[in-house]
Amino acid sequence: MIKPQRLYEGDTVAIVSLSSGLAGEPGIRWRAEQGIRHIEETFNVKVKVMPNALKGIDYLYDHPEKRAEDLNSALKDPEVKAIICAIGGKESIRLLPYVDFDALTNNPKIFSGYSDTTSNHLMFYNNGISTSYGPALLTDFAENIEMDDYTVESIRKTWFSTEPIGDIKPAAKLRKYGLQWDIENKEKRRPLLDNAGYESINGSGAAEGHLIGGCFEVIDNIRGTELFPDLNQFDGGILFFENSETNITPETLEDNLRSLSMIGIFDRVHGIIIGRPESGIYYEEYKEVWQKILKEAGREDLPVLYNLSFGHNEPKFILPYGLKAKVDTEKLTFEILESAVTD
């Protein structure tokens, strides 16, 4: 994988809305501004909002080409060193016909987002560029009062350092989901909940491999499209999956995991990490579904860690696509064994 260059203080970071245009809605604009301020103050970088990023839900839904135009421009802009997505959504796959893939491959840059941004990550991944399944503007960067230290530490280790990222500890606390994004809540902190830590739910021992995955619902929805990775890209991988706030039923998870099993993905990977279900909903039920499907696949040996803090969790750590990682179900540890960026 081609790695982007690291960030330095004083560098410029671009904001794009490649999925939902929520950041530009009148009632949410304050939150986008709060996130921008936190980026600037916490990391001492400059923020450049791309021309269409704040044009609202309806305009950006009707104009996927404008969303792609912002991405293309940010990639080609020599001033921009990193690109951060405003939020996820439902249909960023619609950008595919409009993305300038020459610009994408010739200008590797830090690129961050999660959820529906999985589709965008795979545009990079399928072209050999490592990106960050990580924080978004309206959620992590715009956390009320201040950003979470756990998230800030992950950003610094992943984007600002060329040292191997190393051991990823469980988040000691989790943010309770559900604080309404109304301006009257601007000075209100979300409650923190205790986190139980990592849990081994399948297999034994340790496994190493390259990171590949994303939001489960998006991965499932893009099956059959050109964005879905070739099966050989799963060979020897560490698969990472997490689910969105829609909280699909355990029955739906079972059906969709079985489909992925039948195309052979679980036969190819070396290990799996699974993000904590959003708000802990279906925590035990999802775990039982995974165990059932892996037993059906004859992969009761496959090391699987559960309850990791990425994706639809705050705080979160960053998963850089394609990097070598290690899962250990005996020690209950997860490590990223190389740096995500270069000098």
Rank of each mutant, 00 (worst) to 15 (best):
Q5W: 06
R6G: 08
L7Y: 10
G10W: 08
I15E: 07
G21L: 09
R31H: 07
G35Y: 11
G35M: 11
H38S: 14
H38C: 07
E41F: 04
E41P: 02
T42D: 05
V45E: 09
K46W: 08
K48S: 14
P51M: 10
P51W: 09
A53C: 11
L60S: 08
D62P: 00
A82W: 08
I93Q: 13
R94L: 14
F101Y: 15
T105N: 03
P108Y: 11
F111D: 01
F111H: 13
N126A: 07
N126D: 04
N126T: 03
Y133F: 15
P135V: 03
A136K: 10
E146N: 11
D149V: 02
I155T: 03
T158C: 11
F160C: 04
I168A: 00
I168W: 00
A172N: 05
L179T: 13
R189A: 15
R189F: 02
G203H: 09
G214V: 02
F216C: 01
I222Y: 06
G224K: 08
T225L: 12
L231P: 02
N232F: 07
G236A: 02
L239P: 00
L239H: 01
E251I: 09
T252M: 12
S261D: 13
W290L: 13
W290D: 01
Q291H: 09
E300F: 06
D301A: 11
L308A: 04
H312E: 14
A325V: 04
V327F: 06
D328S: 09
L337Q: 09
